[in-house]
Simulated scan of single mutants.
Amino acid sequence: MHMHDIQFIDMFCGAGLFSAAALAAGMAPAFAIDLSSDAIATYNANVRQVGVVGSVMDERTLPRADVLIAGPPCQGFSTLGRQDPLDVRNRLSMAVPEWAHRCGARVVVIENVPPFLRSSHWQELSSALGDLGYGVQTWELEAADYGAPQYRRRSFTIGSKIGDVQLPMALNRKITAGEVLSLPIGSDDPMHTWPTPVGIAAQRIPLVPPLGDKRDIMRAAPELCPPSWKKVGCQATDVWGRVNPDEPSNTIRCAFQNPSKGRYLHPTEDRVLSLREGARLQGVPDSWTFVGRPYPVARQIGNGVPVALGSAVMRSVVDAIRHEAVASTSVAA
């Protein structure tokens, strides 16, 4: 079996970061789907032109595939979301076993936030995969351990019909945010843009020193701070914070161009991260351009799996498939 013979389908593919990781691990995309037309336009421009706009609940014929990958919307499970157990988005995860059955996948990889593994939806999903003959493994991995310049814990549920998939080996060195942010960016890069701070934001940002955060603004200019900041006390100290260049960055979320949402100010310049810088912290090559207006593009970036983490997981899957192919060849011989 040649490496490029390993075909995969990507459900909820977004802009294609998980697909890019699978491609880097030696797989070929057969089909991808997402509700967002901007995300699919990004996918088709940068990964391969196999993406379609649509819902995973629609009737459609699927191509055969060895591997099915899926990152169902996590808002219902995220510690940041409202965690509504009846969230309609959570039902989407139950489409995964059905698709796995229909495309004949030998391995299924579901990426989500860690609390997903402790939800009733995961229980239901896991038993549905078990009923279809998949052995189920779960991993909770930290992206920074696998070469992503970003701290981001994610869960992976692996359903396999070919035996256990080996846990990927962590690297012995973390890549810092400064290493990727300090590389030059072309002046003509359409992604090197950020919202110009106006009004009170423009007054606050210059008051934040390197490594600083909202506490520095509170000390320097209490008049620029709402009363709620004092009430919150020590919580949410990362807001209005600068990225620490000597560590992996904080998790890049959809709102990474809003300084009130986290530690998203540039390490030294008086601005938030650019779209290109956010993409770099997710491991997206500079050759990628994203389709859409700035906030939808920031969402496409923030919703993705860091490419280095996805690649580590998918290399383990490729190894398992090749190992099984060798074993079945020698049995046949």
Rank of each mutant, 00 (worst) to 15 (best):
M11Y: 13
A15T: 10
L17W: 10
F18I: 06
A20W: 10
A22L: 09
A25N: 01
I33Q: 02
S36N: 11
A41L: 08
N44T: 02
R48T: 06
R48Q: 15
G51A: 07
D58T: 05
R64S: 15
D66R: 10
I69A: 10
I69R: 03
G76C: 07
V88F: 13
N90V: 05
V96A: 03
E98G: 11
E98M: 11
C103M: 05
R106Q: 15
V108A: 01
E111R: 10
N112W: 13
P115V: 02
F116Q: 03
R118W: 11
S120G: 04
H121F: 15
E142H: 09
A143V: 06
A144W: 05
D145K: 01
Q150H: 09
Y151F: 12
S160V: 00
K161Q: 11
I162V: 15
D164P: 12
M169S: 14
T176C: 04
L183S: 09
L207I: 01
V208E: 04
K214I: 12
R215I: 02
I217W: 12
I217G: 12
M218V: 04
M218Q: 14
A221K: 04
P222C: 05
P226A: 15
S228F: 11
W229I: 05
T237E: 15
V239S: 05
W240L: 13
R242I: 12
P245S: 00
P248C: 09
S249D: 01
A255L: 06
N258F: 14
H266N: 04
P267R: 04
P267S: 05
E269I: 08
R271Q: 13
R271I: 14
R276Y: 12
D286R: 10
W288I: 13
W288R: 09
P296V: 06
G302Q: 06
G302K: 09
V305I: 14
S311C: 14
S311Q: 13
S316N: 01
D319A: 14
A320H: 00
E324K: 06
A325H: 07
A327Q: 03
A333F: 08
